[in-house]
């Protein structure tokens, strides 16, 4: 944790998740069926990132 993160390292994940979320917002407007499914998949990305981070914090953190 002592290593400074570069701007790229800080922003890579948020930007990718932001773009994926934007795809999720727009695709369901464009059509039904496959477009809806694309939207559902896109929106699971930010939620999956949160679950991943919480799971990692629980398993890696030393007990208090």
């Amino acid at each position: 944790m002592s290593v400074l993160q570069t701007t790229r390292q800080i922003w890579a994940a948020p930007i990718v998740l932001g773009i994926v979320s934007a795809i999720g917002l727009v695709s369901a407007l464009l059509g039904d069926g496959i477009w809806d499914a694309l939207s559902w998949m896109a929106f699971t990305a930010p939620i999956a990132a949160i679950l991943w981070a919480i799971a990692r914090a629980i398993s890696h953190s030393p007990s208090l």
Partner: peptide, 22 residues
């Protein structure tokens, strides 16, 4: 957000230090 994350990898949650930090 950027400055706060200067020393933290994405998704890090510092559980052990203090409740507030977590």
């Amino acid at each position: 957000y950027g400055p706060f994350m200067r020393k933290l990898p994405f998704g890090a949650i510092r559980r052990a230090r203090s409740t507030r930090l977590a």
